[in-house]
Simulated scan of single mutants.
Amino acid sequence: MNRALNFHRSLIIFGIPLLIIGVMILITKSPIFIINQKSLSIGITFDLLLTVPFVYFLLIRKTKVPKISIISFLIIGMVVCYVIIPPKNQYYLNLFKTWIFPVLELSILSYVIYNLTKAIKRYKSNRNKSVDFFTALKNTCLEILPKGAVNPVVMEIAVLYYGFIYWKKRKLNENEFSYHKNSGTISLLTAIICIIAIETVVFHILLSKWNTPTAWILTFLSIYSGIQIFGFIKSMFKRPISIENNKLFLRYGIMNETIINLTDIDSIEVSSKDIELDKVTRKLSFLGELESHNIVIRLKEENTLIGLYGIKRTYKNLVLHIDNKIEFKNQIMYALENRT
């Protein structure tokens, strides 16, 4: 019953604005539009840029749908307007793109930063919790962004933050553990960046002789890939594994993470023996078998591993690398024996 009601409500919320957009498109295909092209172009432009977002706002104002999702219909309206309105009649669309839309973008960015700052302050106010930027960022974006936009936005901001903003050395607390010093992952990813850099230069020179725009597009994609990998590397230094409040927070930079209740652990073993990976047994590292491991955690029941862009996979056994493996195991065993 609730599913049917939610589907009906969603159909109304998204269906009415989309119906208006559809009507606008049909008008531009009619003979009336050809006769009154200039005046109708102005009306359709204002409907797509103002009426549609306003109608959507009225439909969601008393729901839990984030108000910031209005920007989605604004962007859709801009794209449709650009496609269906003749270039000579896009004066008001160009004004909107030049003066109003950039202001909206800055406002949204400021709103995200403001809410993120508040979230981090809430973390700092609780002395029992360590401040984790990535977690705070996700929680903030979940509150203010449409669900489908959260993971891409979080990942892009996190890559820039860890790669180019957060340079301060991260000191580990007694309950925190590093996992990058002896695993060889940093060397492997650094080598990949170097390979990308060399190939980018070579392919750019070769492709520019054939097609310059294509050469620059592929160069940009290669640079973007290198930036992401660099952000991944830096995040491994800044997001240690930790044991807090009877929970084990397992993080592999911003690439993979999972939370395990200590009471759900069936056994923990210090072992570097080869282990077959499948749907039951997974590695915390996104590199899989390319990275060595020295810890095997077996659970009493299934848990969820969250990967890049929010991809979820279940597991019951998890293998990982910890630099100080003995202390890691001892702290977990001690916490299990003395849990309240």
Rank of each mutant, 00 (worst) to 15 (best):
L50R: 08
Q37L: 08
L95H: 12
P66C: 06
S69Q: 10
V52N: 02
P53A: 09
K88I: 15
I75W: 03
Q37W: 11
S41A: 12
V55N: 05
S39F: 13
L58S: 14
I70C: 13
F96R: 00
I84L: 04
I84C: 02
M78L: 13
T98V: 08
C81W: 01
I44P: 01
S72D: 15
K67Y: 09
Y92I: 11
L58W: 14
L74R: 02
V80G: 00
V79S: 14
S72E: 14
K88R: 14
V52W: 05
F96K: 01
F46K: 05
Y91K: 14
I84H: 00
S41H: 03
F96P: 01
L59R: 08
F96G: 01
K38Q: 15
S39N: 12
P86Y: 14
F57T: 10
L40A: 03
F73S: 00
I44C: 04
P66F: 02
P87F: 09
L49K: 03
I76L: 13
L58V: 12
P53Y: 09
L48Q: 05
F73D: 00
F73T: 00
L48C: 07
F73N: 00
I75P: 01
F57V: 07
L59N: 08
I85L: 06
I75Q: 03
I42P: 00
V55S: 07
T45M: 05
K64L: 10
Q37Y: 08
S72A: 15
F96C: 03
K97P: 01
I60V: 08
L74T: 11
T98F: 10
I85N: 01
I44F: 03
T51R: 04
T63N: 12
W99M: 12
L95S: 05
F96E: 03
P53I: 06
L40Q: 03
M78Q: 13
T98M: 15
K97Y: 09
K88Y: 15
L58T: 13
V83K: 13
I70F: 11
V79D: 15
I44M: 12
I84K: 05
R61L: 15
I71W: 09
